[in-house]
Design a protein around this nucleic acid. Structure first.
Length: 482
RNA sequence: GCUCCUUUCGUCUAGCCUGGUCAGGACUACGCGUUUUCAUCGCGUCAACAGGGGUUCGAAUCCCCUAGGGAGUACCA
């Protein structure tokens, strides 16, 4: 039987990184077994579901490279792939279940239900539905339905325990009386999650359900429905949850949780995927920087950790940096151009300048977004005064260097200073002015760049317009005048 | 409340099934080396088996109890 795995998001928001992670695991498992990866849109919550969210989630999945084989935008044999378009199917099977006695119409109103729940809660009992409408005869309920009385369809919970083997959790079971008869069709005619999910997984011939642990308890209800439907039960893998710094389920208040946010921040999709993969799954050789395509052959369900994982931006950044370091200068230059704003001076530079720049900073950044400030640092005439630069500026030698460089730059008319010329200046300062070591290099750096630290001095200076350097030097003079 | 899941360095984790190397790796922090700076890179240091019982010559590993954390308990998914 061909492996078929699905990712089934509800379009009520942007693609969450937790969702991206389960999608990744599903994708990997499907690829590993040369099976199909199916995207199903669970849009039965009329109020919260929005087409724009469906579109953005698909766009995010595509950006990550998690391409589905079947979905709303890629019809297959078992469609439609949007639950709102499958209502006839859910109706058909719920009617069958009623026929079989596995479900029944319930005419209880919300108000009645609330009172029942309250009483049970007061008595310290689980707020399960008491089964009032179970005993209404077929004739009576048919009549009441014909009269237009509002009703739901409830599932008749069997009186035997259920258990199953989860690929991550092992054997999981529940006692009888764990749940009360639950609604499978709402009064507005829409199916509920546990019901339509089960019907779809069955009809879509899903063989492996890989999802987050918050669905573990839902599996009980779904198992009941599979049984009533006479459907074959798929295999399950309930992956641990992603949590935030406070160890609560990851949510908006923990910072960036949507995939699109990371895209906006210019993270590499491969790096995000690589990191996400590590949150709950481990490489058999304990590698932590690897390409997703390279683990397709070794990915399996036995290497999941059971406890929830905390999202750690530091490690994401590290991995992103590793990917960035492996890129060619050509690619980097293209990426840099993408990241810099349209008015950034970066775009006005020659290809040679861009290459030197890329070479110079590739090891200094973990994320493309940092390029912006690196460019700014070169083109700003601002000087950074802190304890370190102040100390360097207080040296007499620095003052001499500053005077010398000011005079050299006076009337300088080439677009850039060559590395050789900077070398000549250094030699002059060393041999003629007798300034060397730290005093020479740090003095030179602060005078030329206005900062105590930065990339290779000769190269940054070569990349900086002489006019900017001249401005910095005059600002330094002002500072010293105080 | 009830049910289910879970607990190894600050973080992600390996090891657990098939008891027996100073409990290994990675990120972070710190230190050293390289870089006359910073970063990269290399090397190193700090740092954990939730607690308590048991079984055993021997327990992170097997069993029991306690505590903590999470999820679910909907006409949300």
């Amino acid at each position: 039987m061909p492996v078929r795995v699905r990712f089934a998001p509800s379009p009520t928001g942007y693609l969450h990184i937790g969702g991206a992670r389960t999608a990744l695991y599903s994708y990997l498992f499907a690829k590993r077994h040369k099976g199909q990866f199916i995207l199903r849109v669970e849009d039965t919550d009329l109020e919260r579901s929005k087409k724009e969210f469906e579109d953005s989630q698909i766009a995010d999945l595509n950006w990550l490279g998690l391409i589905h084989d079947e979905g709303p935008d890629k019809p297959g044999d078992v469609g439609p792939y949007r639950q709102s378009e499958r209502l006839d199917i859910y109706k058909k099977y719920s009617a069958e279940l009623v026929e079989k006695g596995a479900a029944y119409p319930c005419f209880c109103t919300n108000a009645q239900l609330d009172i029942k729940k309250e009483k049970l809660a007061e008595a310290g009992k689980a707020p399960h539905y008491d089964g009032t409408c179970r005993n209404i005869s077929q004739e009576e309920s048919s009549k009441r339905i014909a009269d237009g009385e509002e009703h739901t369809i409830r599932f008749t919970v069997p009186d035997h325990p259920f258990d199953f083997k989860d690929h991550v959790r092992g054997n999981v079971g529940w006692p009888i009386d764990m749940v009360g008869d639950f609604v499978i069709m709402r009064s507005n005619g829409m199916p509920t999650y546990n019901y339509c999910c089960t019907v779809d997984d069955w009809l879509m011939k899903i063989t492996h359900v890989i999802r987050a642990e918050d669905h573990l308890n839902n599996t009980l209800r779904q198992l009941m429905i599979y049984e009533a439907l006479g459907a074959e039960i798929p295999e399950f893998a309930h992956v641990s949850l992603l949590i935030g710094k406070d160890r609560q389920k990851l949510s908006k208040r923990h910072g960036a949780t949507s995939v699109s946010q990371y895209q906006k921040e210019h993270y590499l999709p491969e790096a995000l995927l690589n990191y996400l993969c590590l949150l709950g799954w481990s490489h058999p050789e304990e590698k932590d920087v690897f390409n997703i395509e390279d683990i397709v052959d070794i990915f399996d369900l036995d290497r999941f950790s059971k406890s929830p994982a905390m999202f750690d931006v530091d490690k994401l950044n590290y991995i992103n940096g590793q990917y960035l370091r492996a890129m060619s200068i050509e690619t980097l230059v293209l990426k840099f151009a993408e990241v810099c704003s349209s008015e950034s001076p970066f775009h006005k530079q020659t290809p040679e300048w861009k290459n030197i720049f890329a070479e110079l900073i590739k090891d200094k950044i973990q994320n493309f977004i940092e390029v912006r400030e690196k460019v700014d640092e070169i083109f700003t005439s601002d000087i950074y005064l802190n304890d370190e630069t102040k100390e360097i500026l207080s040296w007499d030698s620095t003052k001499l260097i500053q005077e010398y460089l000011a005079s050299e730059l006076d009337g300088f008319d080439k677009p850039f200073i060559s590395e050789d010329l900077i070398g000549d200046w250094m030699n002059h300062i060393k041999s003629e002015m007798k300034i060397k070591g730290k005093h020479l290099f740090m003095g030179m750096r602060v005078v030329l760049t206005g900062k105590a630290h930065g990339p290779d001095l000769k190269k940054v200076a070569r990349l900086t317009p002489p006019g900017i350097i001249a401005q910095r030097i005059s600002k330094l003079s002002l500072y010293e005048g105080h």
